[in-house]
Design a protein around this nucleic acid. Structure first.
Lengths: 116, 116
DNA sequence: CTAATCAACAACCATATGGTTGCAGATCAG
DNA sequence: CTGATCTGCAACCATATGGTTGTTGATTAG
């Protein structure tokens, strides 16, 4: 399909990256439209170097990519890791419902319609 | 509405709690069925005190609750924060699609004054 | 050419994190 | 009662994190 599951290491990085308010806000910003590092830097009450570090954390997590354009670095969001993280939540929900063990059966027995 | 949105502080705690492999595994364990702290402690190659700390982190994030039963503390999962976190991902998806429009105000985490 | 802008990098600092060990308090078994 | 078990708490340690300032290197403007 669109994306594989996150490896544990990727999950570590993605969740860590999202565990900071400034970084979540940066992700929202660039999801709404790309932005340069310096433009992001102007949005937050901290030094540019601090914002650079936040962007680097997001980059390591695969949540954003940087592209050079002249003397600017343009930051863009990548939805894939977010989607994979969301899948992890779905997996947990399935676990909670006790469905996980049957998921294999669902795939193995497509003719039978397990009710509910 | 089943659940309110996570506050920024709650989001910090939830994502931080999930940014550790052992803690994600503990959540999976207790989603599959409750467990005592000592039973969890036996599952991981670290001291019981370390596992206690992990459980405490999950508890602060609201992801699990502890109930006393005799001399044991039973750990159970709470799905609500997980669902709210999943909603945050849906919000990001919506943002990406440019659908947000005014919804943004409802969900925005005020970091600083309305820039621009 | 010169000056200003954008960005990376390094060094530094305070605090948080994830682990340890050891001790103390309940609770249960015999 | 005695002892083993389950848990919490405190002290301690190494490393990571999130911030700072300062310096350097490209790139663009005048």
């Amino acid at each position: 399909m669109v994306a594989d599951q996150l490896t544990p290491e990727q999950a570590d990085r993605v969740f860590h990256a999202l565990a900071d308010r400034t970084r979540r806000d940066i992700v929202r910003s660039v999801l709404g439209g790309e932005a340069s590092v310096s433009a992001l830097g102007r949005q937050y009450p901290m030094s540019l170097a601090a914002v650079q570090k936040h962007v680097a954390v997001l980059e390591r997590a695969g949540l954003v990519t940087k592209t050079r354009r002249g003397r600017e670095q343009i930051v863009r969001a990548d939805l894939d890791p977010l989607r994979r993280a969301a899948q992890l939540f779905e997996h947990l929900e399935a676990l909670w419902r006790g469905r996980v063990d049957r998921m294999g059966e669902l795939l193995a027995e497509p003719q039978k319609g397990p009710s509910r």
